[in-house]
Amino acid sequence: MSGIPLSWWLTLGTVLFGVGTIGVLTRRNALVVFMSIELMLNAVNLILLAFARQRGDEHGHVLAFFIIAVAAAEAAVGLAIILSVFRHKRSVNLDDVRALKH
């Protein structure tokens, strides 16, 4: 692991983040959007850890753990919302969930 240069990790993280972002913006299925958000969070985790390793600073690890914990909580809440939406609308398509417009 130590043999792999930092720039590779960063590149991988950035690519993962970009994939996640595009997924969030383009996909219509709520579950897929949700998974894309997880992808973005984990891309950030990866970059945090890469820097932490490189700098020998354990604060990055701590922050990554926080993100994992918050992401777990967020996943629970998010899935509950999606489930609830599905029960109402019989659909998890985001285009069908637009009640909060003007």
Partner: peptide, 17 residues
């Protein structure tokens, strides 16, 4: 400016990005 709030979450996300 009412067209900005169209209820489509992903457009909001685009704006954010």
């Amino acid at each position: 400016i009412r067209f900005v709030q169209n209820g489509e979450v992903q457009r909001y996300a685009v704006a954010m990005v």
